[in-house]
Simulated assay, not measured.
Amino acid sequence: MTTAAELKALQAPVKQRYRDDPAAAVTALRGTASFADPGITCTVRTFAGPVRAGLHRATGGDGADACSGDMLLEAVAACAGVTCRASPPRWACRSSAPTSRRQLPSTPPARWASIGPRRSGFHRSP
């Protein structure tokens, strides 16, 4: 486990580089996918290996493939979790439980309308 002091020391040269050259702080993100697998699927290359996304059960899928909407919300949750654990205690997720045993609350519930590609979209749950 990295302590706050260790993290601060680890990030010090990076932060100094960004102060000296703000353009160096701009980081490109990427996502790569292919249609290599059969069916109505798209395979995304991730750090942990390939993940095949396909039709959700609500649109005729059989549930064998990942839902791209869930993948999107999981990525947001991962980003929030890493940020929370890297933040100083005064900014970190507030709870009396140690961060290592705590579970982040889920992202805000989302719903989507599976009525066709031109009319579907994400909607925030009430």
Rank of each mutant, 00 (worst) to 15 (best):
M1V: 11
T2Q: 12
T3S: 10
A5F: 03
A5Y: 02
A5N: 09
E6V: 00
E6N: 03
E6F: 02
L7S: 04
L7G: 00
L10T: 06
Q11T: 15
Q11V: 15
P13E: 05
P13S: 04
V14K: 01
V14C: 00
V14W: 03
K15P: 01
K15C: 06
K15S: 09
Q16P: 03
Q16S: 06
Q16D: 07
R19M: 11
R19C: 12
D21W: 12
D21E: 13
A25G: 07
A25S: 14
L29W: 08
G31C: 14
T32L: 14
S34P: 00
F35G: 10
F35C: 08
D37M: 01
I40K: 05
T41C: 02
T43A: 08
T43L: 04
T43W: 01
R45Y: 06
R45E: 13
T46Q: 05
A48C: 07
P50A: 13
P50R: 07
P50Q: 09
R52L: 01
R52N: 00
G54W: 01
G54M: 02
L55Y: 02
H56M: 05
R57H: 02
A58Q: 08
T59R: 03
G60F: 03
G61S: 05
G61D: 02
D62W: 01
G63D: 00
A64D: 01
C67L: 13
G69Y: 15
G69C: 15
D70N: 13
D70Y: 13
D70G: 11
M71D: 09
M71H: 11
L72C: 13
L72N: 11
L73V: 14
E74F: 11
E74Y: 14
V76H: 13
C79G: 15
V82P: 02
C84L: 09
R85G: 05
A86Y: 03
A86P: 01
P88L: 14
P89C: 05
R90A: 13
R90T: 11
R90L: 08
W91L: 13
W91Y: 12
W91V: 06
W91K: 08
A92L: 04
C93N: 12
S95D: 04
S96G: 05
S96K: 05
A97Q: 13
A97R: 14
P98T: 05
S100V: 13
S100P: 04
Q103S: 11
L104V: 07
L104C: 11
P109D: 15
A110C: 08
A110V: 11
R111V: 15
W112V: 09
A113L: 10
A113F: 11
S114G: 07
S114T: 07
R118T: 09
R119N: 07
S120C: 08
G121K: 08
G121F: 05
R124Y: 04
S125Q: 10
S125Y: 10
